[in-house]
Simulated assay, not measured.
Amino acid sequence: MAVFGTVFMPQMALATFENDKWNDTQKVSAESIQIHPGAHVLHYSSTCFEGLKAFRHEDGGIYVFRMDKNLNRFEQSSELLNLPKINKHQVAAMILDIVAQYADEVPQPPGSMYIRPTHVGTEASIGKAAAPSLSSILYVLLSPVGDYFAGGAKPLRLLLDETGMRCAPHMGMIKSGGNYASALGPILKARNDVQADQILFCPNGDVQETGAANFILIDGNEIITKALDSSFLHGVTRDSILTLAADLGMTISERNISVDELLERAAKPGVEAALSGTAAVLTPVGTFIHNDKEHQVGNGEAGLTTMKLRQALNDIQWGKAEDKHNWLVKVN
């Protein structure tokens, strides 16, 4: 199987915003897009995207998971970047239409079709460092993917960083490429220096998120995660996992948690930690690295509750459990 996210369907859906209006959707080659070298996005990072998935069920039906939630965040990201306001109805139609076109290419579980709507500012003006792009393109790219855990769900090693942040605080809830770029240098350094898989950013001791996923702590029947604010990404998978945990009767605590409390709880038997995101669903965490010392989380292995919640979410996505919350949209 190819590396996750490196195979693409031949065509994508694309729409342009010009003269204060969105033009009709086109089907174009997914090989390239044409923008001016002076395009706003290339100089001032006016770009945002989403990540969602379509799944194949046993009856052959194809279903997109939580498209409405992703579209709401896509709209929010575009507005916070002062990009043209998206037409959610048009984008929803773009997603469903292009997925339907490639329905036969949607892999069987545990694979899926990864869907990447992307919005970029295209106005050719290098004098607009402090002004928004008045034109843009929006496209929907498809990538069939296999199991993110093809080699098994190996518990991750996280470096706790109390000095840095993933991105500027007011940019945190925007799903923009610049936020990932700003976290990349510290993550690469952590991999090299202490063999960490990711950094858990904890500015001034406040446990927030990693470079590409939300963080949760599970202590017995309680699931603890930072309450939503503008400093970090409002994950759709995070929301789904918390909803399923509540369905199972777990106590949901959305609140601030300090590094001190995190390490104190992590030392207790049975405590679990995990990262949530579209690609990896729920990834177990086995080790925290803090001030050159390693702290094992619980028994250091993938926790039972973590894997139970991950399976519960997968079962809904794959059509093996009832979709009580109406999260799935049928494509065909």
Rank of each mutant, 00 (worst) to 15 (best):
M171N: 03
K175F: 09
M12Y: 00
D161S: 06
I252V: 14
L52V: 05
V99D: 06
Q311C: 03
H325E: 03
G127H: 05
N204T: 06
L71E: 09
K330F: 01
L159R: 08
D247A: 04
S240W: 08
L14V: 09
I257C: 09
Q76E: 07
A93M: 09
R66V: 06
A266P: 06
L71K: 12
A15T: 14
E50K: 11
A15Q: 04
T243R: 15
S176P: 00
E79Y: 07
G146K: 13
D59Q: 06
E79F: 04
I174N: 08
R66C: 06
R238A: 02
T118C: 14
P84L: 14
E272S: 08
E261V: 05
T278F: 05
L134M: 12
L81V: 01
T210G: 02
L275F: 01
I224C: 02
F8C: 02
S182N: 13
G211P: 08
S253M: 11
G298W: 04
K226G: 01
L158T: 05
E222V: 15
G319E: 07
A279C: 04
R116A: 04
N299L: 03
N192P: 00
M165P: 00
S253V: 14
R310Q: 12
A168D: 15
V3S: 12
L159S: 02
I33A: 06
M307S: 13
T210H: 08
I115V: 11
I35W: 01
R56A: 09
N214H: 13
N256R: 14
D147M: 05
G61A: 14
D323H: 08
V259N: 02
A279F: 10
G146D: 13
A54E: 01
P110M: 12
E79W: 06
E75R: 12
I223W: 09
D197I: 12
S182Q: 14
S258N: 10
N256K: 13
V207H: 01
G300F: 03
A274F: 04
N192H: 15
T287R: 10
D24H: 08
G277M: 11
N214P: 05
M67H: 10
A321R: 07
L304K: 13
D20P: 01
H36R: 05
P84K: 10
T283K: 12
A13F: 03
L83P: 00
R255H: 07
H325C: 02
A280R: 13
H170P: 00
S125M: 03
G211Q: 14
I252G: 11
N82F: 08
P109H: 11
L158C: 08
T6F: 05
L156S: 13
H325I: 01
Q34D: 12
Q208K: 13
N72L: 02
R166F: 07
K293C: 12
S276L: 01
L328M: 15
L14Y: 01
M12W: 04
V145M: 11
V271K: 00
G152L: 13
L141Y: 00
T118H: 08
M171H: 06
T163Y: 15
Y114G: 10
A266H: 10
R157L: 05
L228E: 14
P84H: 07
N72R: 13
D59C: 04
N23Y: 10
G286P: 03
R238M: 11
S135N: 13
F4S: 01
L81P: 00
I199R: 14
N192A: 14
V28T: 10
Q195H: 15
V41G: 02
M173F: 13
S143V: 00
